[in-house]
């Protein structure tokens, strides 16, 4: 695969949505192409940053109890 072909598949590569052979050819390309490797690292960091830094709230126990009560009352 050349740089253009790799670029057009980078998103699928990062999301691991390519067939095995394509995953392999991109891995091989990245080992020898610093430009594509850098682009890959940056895109990967973007995905990782989203997952790690996005706000996640822990549900309070009274909300869970509220849901349980709601279902209990509605289903009887």
């Amino acid at each position: 695969m050349n740089c253009t072909e790799v670029a057009s598949r980078l998103q699928l590569f990062i999301d691991e949505e390519l067939i095995f052979q394509d995953m392999e050819s991109i891995r091989k390309h990245l080992q020898v192409c610093p430009d594509c490797e850098k682009r890959f690292q940056t895109e990967k960091l973007f995905k990782q940053t989203l997952k790690d830094k996005i706000m996640k709230r822990n549900i309070e126990s009274h909300v869970v109890d509220g849901v349980k009560d709601f279902i209990h009352n509605s289903s009887n």
Partner: peptide, 12 residues
């Protein structure tokens, strides 16, 4: 890459 490293959760 630096941009991503410096972003805080609130901005994301």
């Amino acid at each position: 890459q630096e941009i991503y490293n410096n972003l805080v959760g609130d901005e994301i």
